[in-house]
Design a protein around this nucleic acid. Sequence first.
DNA 1: CCTAGTTTCTAAAGCGCTTTAGATCCTGTT
DNA 2: AACAGGATCTAAAGCGCTTTAGAAACTAGG
Lengths: 342, 342
Amino acid sequence: MAKRSSLREIAEELGLSVPTVSRALGGYSDIALATRERVADAARRLGYEPNSAGRMLASGKSGYVGLVLPVGERQFVDAYLGAIVAGLSEGLAERDLQLMIAAVAPGHTPLDTIRKLVNARRVDGLVLTRIASEDPRIAFLLDRDLPFVTLGRQRDGMPDHPWLDVDDGAAFDHAIETLAGLGHRHVGLISITDDLTFARRREAATEAAASRLGLRLSRCAAARDDRRARHDGIASILAGKDRPTAILGLVDGIALDVLMIAARIGLSVPAELSVIGFDDISGSAYSAPPLTTFDPDNRQVGRLAAGMMHDLLTARDGAPTQMMCQAQFVSRATHGPAPLLE
Amino acid sequence: MAKRSSLREIAEELGLSVPTVSRALGGYSDIALATRERVADAARRLGYEPNSAGRMLASGKSGYVGLVLPVGERQFVDAYLGAIVAGLSEGLAERDLQLMIAAVAPGHTPLDTIRKLVNARRVDGLVLTRIASEDPRIAFLLDRDLPFVTLGRQRDGMPDHPWLDVDDGAAFDHAIETLAGLGHRHVGLISITDDLTFARRREAATEAAASRLGLRLSRCAAARDDRRARHDGIASILAGKDRPTAILGLVDGIALDVLMIAARIGLSVPAELSVIGFDDISGSAYSAPPLTTFDPDNRQVGRLAAGMMHDLLTARDGAPTQMMCQAQFVSRATHGPAPLLE
DNA sequence: CCTAGTTTCTAAAGCGCTTTAGATCCTGTT
DNA sequence: AACAGGATCTAAAGCGCTTTAGAAACTAGG
C-alpha cells in the first residue's frame, strides 16, 4: 500500500502541472492560496514525501551532514561517540538535516574518505573530531570550500575556521587551583603522546597554572592505546617518597587507571592521593571512590555543532563562527586536602 | 581546484559518449577493454566520483542504511549507541553502503520518522534497536516490504523477520548456574518494567534456571529511567535477614547501583553479596570491586548487522536470516561463594 | 562479394525534482 | 475599448546518472 506517490501523481489527481504542485508545496506566493491548500491536502492524503534523490539532484544539496568516524579506538568509541552522535542527530533532525556516519574503509585514509564524500556530493557539510595540531583534513576542506565544523581545534596560529571546543584549558586550570587551595604543592599530569590538540592544550594549561601558583609538576605520557606503558608511567610517578600528592588524568580513562594503580600499591584516595579526571564517562560515578572529574556534556556539544552547521549551510556569510563550551566540575570523592608528607 | 568532474566531462575529454563512459566504469563487457582502461585512467586523473544524487535517482537505490535512534535515554546512549554505530558504520563502509542516523524529531513518533524515511526513499534498509514485544515499527516495515534487521527480537510467536540478537537467555542461565555452583540458594533479579523484549527474555531465563536448580528468586523492577524507584526496590530486597545472597542486574547500570547500595548499607561484596551484571560498560571494570558481567561485544554485533543488511539488499531471497550471538562471561570480582547465613 | 553475426559504441529516454521563461486570464486605466 | 500590470499557472529545460534500443563498423561464412 501507499506505493510511490510523486509530484506527478498529485498533479494528475488535481489536474495541475508538476511545477505548480512543486511550487505550491514550496509555499510560493505565485500560486493561489486556494491551490496551495488543495495541493497540501492531496499531499497529506497520499502520504507524499518528496523523493530525496530527485530533490538532491535538482537542488544540488544533499541535506546530509557527515560525521567522519575516527578509526579503531575502543576508548574513543565508548566515551565519546555515542553522546556526540546522539546530540548531533537530534540537533540536525530539528533542522531538517540528516546525519551520515562515514567510517574510514579498510585500506583508505581519512582524507580519502573525505575526498570521496565531497566529490560524490554526498554531504553539504562535515563535522570533524579528534583534531590534530595541524590537521590535513582541515586544510583540504578549506581548500575545497566545503562547510565544516570541527569539534576541537588545531594549534594556535593555524588558519581560521568554524570550530566548537570545550574549554579544557579553563577546566585544568580550575583543577590545579582547587588542588592548590587544598594545600597540594606537587601535582602530576598523566597525558598521551598522540598528536591531538586537546592534549597539548590541557598540558599547557596545567603547566601554566602550576607555575603561576608555584606548584611543582611531574608529567608522564604514553601512546593512548598503550595501556602498558601508561601503567608503567603512572606507577613510576607514584613510586618514591617524593611523589606528587595529586594526579590529573588527561581523560577519565587515565584517571581511573591511576585509581586502580593507587589501590594496588596501597595508596589511599583521597587521603594520601587526590585524583581528578576529565569526561565524566559512565564509569566515573562508580569507581572507588567515585571520581572527581569534569563533564563536558558531549551531547549538548553535538547539538550545538548541529546548530553551527545549520548556520553555515544557510547564512553562508560573515566570519567563521567559533564557540567555546565550559565543562562542569563534578566534585566527587577522589580529591581532598594534601596529605602531610615528611 | 578539482571542480565538479562528471561523466560528461570525461566523455568530452575522451571523445566518447556519456553512456559509454558510464558503462566503461561499470566494467560492462560490451565496452572494449582498451576503452575501459582509457576511461578508468581519465576518471582517476580527474578525481571522478559519481554524483550520488544522480546515481540514486537513476538506479532507485540510495545506498543508505538507516539506524533509527531511540529517543532520550542517557543510559542507552552511553552504554550501547557508540559501539553499535561504530560497528555498523565500519561494516557498511566495507560493503560500499552508507550509514545514516535518524533521530526522532520533536513532536514526531518513531513510526513517523520511519515512514518519512521510507516514503522519501532515503534508505534502502533500516536497522532497529530496542525492540518491544510487539513492535509497531516491525509491522510497518513488513507491510511496506522494506528490508530491515532488528537488533533484538519481538516476543515469540510474532511474524518472522531478519534479526540479530545476543543470547541473553544463555547468559542469565549461565549466571544462575555459576551462582548455584557457588552455593547460593536465594538470588535476586533487578529488572525494568519498560516493554523491551530483552528484559522479558532475561527474566524468563533467570526464572527458568532458578526453578530448574531449585533456587529461590526474588525480583523487583522499576521504569528504566526512574532511578529513585529502582534504588528503593534494591534497598528493600537487600534489607531483612532473608535477603538473597546474590543479585543479577538486568544491565550493568543496575548492577553498579546494587554495588553502591550494598556499600551504603554495609554489605561487603562479594563476601556477603554477589553481584553480576550484563553489558560490560566502560565503568564496570573500575567499580569497587570490579563488576562481574557479560560482554555482548556490541561493536561486533554492529558489524554483523551490516553484513546481514548487505545480504538482504543484494540477495533478496530465501528465508529471513537470523543470528544469535553469545555474550562472553567477564569474571571479575563481584561474585563468590555464598555466605553462611544463619 | 554479399549476408549474418559480432563487437563496440551512440541516441534517446527517463528517474523526480526545481527553476526560468513564458503564456493566459483578469483587473483596472486612460 | 484597448492596454499595462498583476495574478496564476504551464512548458521547457536540466540536474548526473543508468538503461534500452539501435546504429555502425568489423569479422566471418558461404
